[in-house]
Design a protein around this nucleic acid. Structure first.
Length: 153
DNA sequence: GCCAACGTTGGC
DNA sequence: GCCAACGTTGGC
């Protein structure tokens, strides 16, 4: 076993793409407004690896790998009235949403598309292949992660 | 653009 | 606490 955990995080490439992350190097993964996704983030550890998934695009799929470098950061967008992620119910003395900081590691040599993922895995192995799955942050099992890494490296 | 899945909200 | 209505995600 290993103490590194693996995750998958989705982003629409129009909003934030793997190329933008490659250019930025590091970024704050803000705007998460789903409790289950937030709770997964709270269990992350520094050094965990994250598959970057492009959603709502053609084709959707895994486009790269990143690493968790910082944890438990209060999401600043929840207090920003100009932000689409502004949450009027969240109070600075008791913030509702937090986020992690990630670092770019590498781009997939070729995109590992959702159709390919569906051939390789069932929904018990990898939740992103489940029809109607809307969770933007998912845990990835170690043996599944190993297989994914082989495919994108 | 459609719609399935499912989380959230609010009336009661 | 139930549940219908509504909103969002995201594949197709």
């Amino acid at each position: 076993m290993t103490d590194v955990n693996y995750w998958l995080m989705k982003s629409e490439p129009d909003a934030y793409s793997i190329d933008t992350l490659k250019n930025d190097g590091v970024t704050l993964w803000d705007g998460i407004r789903n409790y289950q996704a937030r709770n997964y983030m709270r269990t992350m550890k520094k050094g965990d690896k994250v598959f970057f998934y492009h959603s709502n695009c053609k084709p959707p799929g895994i486009v790269g790998l990143m690493e968790i470098i910082d944890l438990n950061i209060v999401d600043p967008t929840q207090f920003d009235q100009q932000s689409k992620y502004f949450d009027p119910k969240s109070k600075p003395e008791n913030p509702r949403w937090d986020c992690v900081k990630v670092k770019f590691l590498f781009k997939s040599k070729t995109i590992l598309s959702l159709p390919e993922l569906k051939i390789l895995f069932n929904e018990n192995d990898l939740l992103v292949v489940k029809k109607g799955n809307r969770l933007s942050i998912l845990p990835v099992k170690y043996n599944v992660a190993k297989k994914l890494l082989e495919k994108i490296s």
